[in-house]
Write a protein that binds this DNA or RNA. Sequence first.
DNA 1: AATGAATGAGACTTCATTCAT
DNA 2: GATGAATGAAGTCTCATTCAT
Lengths: 212, 212, 212, 212
Amino acid sequence: MDTPQPRSLKEKQRQERELLILQVAEDVLLEKGYRDTSMDEIAARVGIAKGTLYLHFAKKEDLMLAFFEREMVGILTCLKKIYATHQSVQSRLEKFVKTIYSDPKERRGHLMYIFINSDDFTMTVKHQAQPIFAEIVQEVSALLDEGKANGEFDTLIPTPLMTTSFFSLLSPRTYRSLIERGYDPKEIMRYSLGIYFRGIGGQFSFATEQQS
Amino acid sequence: MDTPQPRSLKEKQRQERELLILQVAEDVLLEKGYRDTSMDEIAARVGIAKGTLYLHFAKKEDLMLAFFEREMVGILTCLKKIYATHQSVQSRLEKFVKTIYSDPKERRGHLMYIFINSDDFTMTVKHQAQPIFAEIVQEVSALLDEGKANGEFDTLIPTPLMTTSFFSLLSPRTYRSLIERGYDPKEIMRYSLGIYFRGIGGQFSFATEQQS
Amino acid sequence: MDTPQPRSLKEKQRQERELLILQVAEDVLLEKGYRDTSMDEIAARVGIAKGTLYLHFAKKEDLMLAFFEREMVGILTCLKKIYATHQSVQSRLEKFVKTIYSDPKERRGHLMYIFINSDDFTMTVKHQAQPIFAEIVQEVSALLDEGKANGEFDTLIPTPLMTTSFFSLLSPRTYRSLIERGYDPKEIMRYSLGIYFRGIGGQFSFATEQQS
Amino acid sequence: MDTPQPRSLKEKQRQERELLILQVAEDVLLEKGYRDTSMDEIAARVGIAKGTLYLHFAKKEDLMLAFFEREMVGILTCLKKIYATHQSVQSRLEKFVKTIYSDPKERRGHLMYIFINSDDFTMTVKHQAQPIFAEIVQEVSALLDEGKANGEFDTLIPTPLMTTSFFSLLSPRTYRSLIERGYDPKEIMRYSLGIYFRGIGGQFSFATEQQS
DNA sequence: AATGAATGAGACTTCATTCAT
DNA sequence: GATGAATGAAGTCTCATTCAT
């Protein structure tokens, strides 16, 4: 605390760069997958030396973990914000998914899927990120329980099953294949959500929005 | 034909060995993912020398492809057998999924999921296996269309969306997490199918089987 | 000697096969060079199993050595036959070279060059084949000495130098490059010999044959 | 330009290292031939790790190519320098050969021979180095043509044949065998050149220098 | 005797990680 | 702090040689 300003200046630069690294790591991860993401490429794209990467993150795993956490914190924040809303549970979950998927190229949604479903990545990294991961799952579970309690969803389906189904909704690969066939992201979203919510006992009319 | 026994004996051993390799490759693939599956490890687990692996498969990719095809041919056969049955489309698809997942550790089901959803694996191998892959997807699509035609499923949902949802049903990772929490494989299966079929407009009572 | 006929029958077959192996080895060696000549390919081209190759030759080196000796014995025989002729030394040496190069694709000539000049091959093999190699060199040296003695060649040039120059006459590579440019094998031969013999003090008219 | 010294220092070291690698590659190539030259051995002899080699040259072929070009550029430069001299063509070509062979162990001369005559090496590498290779051949051809025009050499011998003969003059293998027998490098050179130049119609007295 | 499946040393190459500058 | 050259373990694949049948 004896040198607060200079430190915070340096510190600010440092954090900006760290952010940049995380963003680049995200880019590369989404493009190439975990194993084909090399530290060399990340450093090159960020425009720093490889060694500098290691000043921020001691291991590739740590970078990926930090990156994962950054994303997951964002998702969790979004989830909590929506959680506090006064709407039906279904509306809130729909809102959540749509928000997650509303960034360019649906990065956040795909990342969430990868974190939860990918082996390559998950095996190496996730066991270290249990807490936040558990919190996200917990939050969604709580919402689903609320939905069961207020009659929106089917009470016969165990919540954990509802939850895992929720997170399996949209695999990036199949998503991409649909995009390639010319489907509109919003349409894909709507139908996927529709299948899910009707499946767990919610109300969903595929016709309605089509008519309006 | 002059030396039928000796040749078939050798050949039998060869095929047994090849089968063993494919099984081990499957094990390792399921445990570690495509990129972390090394030829060294496969050879070591099979108990043969590295070079021997290459007598059976000229490249890692070839092994993975052979292995993929073996599994997918099995799945396709199963699918066609069931396709010819006289039952509701839903029953047939349920039967299909249950059959696929009925082997120990649900390997086939998980593999199908990986083949369809994994990037690592798919990018390297699937382009070579397009035909069979496309056939499986086509077969399921046809069934879903039949279901739409006979009133079982919602005609407002585009078939490709129904199809991709179908193949996203059970990610191995979430499946495993449910198993770890003590859920019964059959139960997981039933609820997942239930959510899916109700989601696409089919009939499904989560209560019924519970009562019987 | 107790079973002379059967043994000689078997033995004959054996020798025929050995001859075939040597011929195939020659083919492959000339096509691909020593290091790219694999035992697999030789066996496959001969139409026998790899193991059978090893019944004839304990090591790749041995095969190459045997093959080298076969060729060199042929060349030596040819050389001795010509040696005994009653002609000028130059005529005899010319005859020798033309004979060596008179087989299809000039195999023997190229092989002689390779044996004498190639590093790859020679380092591995030649030290084992000293005797015959030395004999060929000796024979040529003797002829050159005879030529020096009877006034055909320049006595100021040390015989060993004349000899090595003689064996460096036609490298397969440059030979091939000339063929590719459309030169006639006989023409190449004539000019090369001409340069050499004139070089060592012999008589050679490049014009003569052209005119006739 | 803001950091000229540090950059040039690093760069200098780098180039020194690269030079060292090229020299070692040359050593090993001359000792063992192309196919028996392993990246491991080069690294070990240079005293660096295998990976470091790949910082300088992305592939074995690239190293060999770079090395080839370095040598050939040297030879070409030397050739052009001599070309511009005012002397008889024969004197200039003699000067060229003597210069090429004047380094310790006659490395350059042997390398030139290998580049032009070795299959192993040439097949892999030379097609990438055509331009410089062609230029060297062209330069020598031009000199020989000049010699034919001014009456030094026999006009009846086609220039391409003169050229290939020129490059076949001294095979490293036979050269070494002469050295082993106690001949002096200069003597070998003189006689070989003598045979060649007399052979193509030039003037050469084996006696002269002997007397002086 | 003949086979060819099996072996394993060794080649090339990549990349996460370290460390002297 | 920042750099990027250096490292070396690990991965894929080849091929001479052996050996059970």
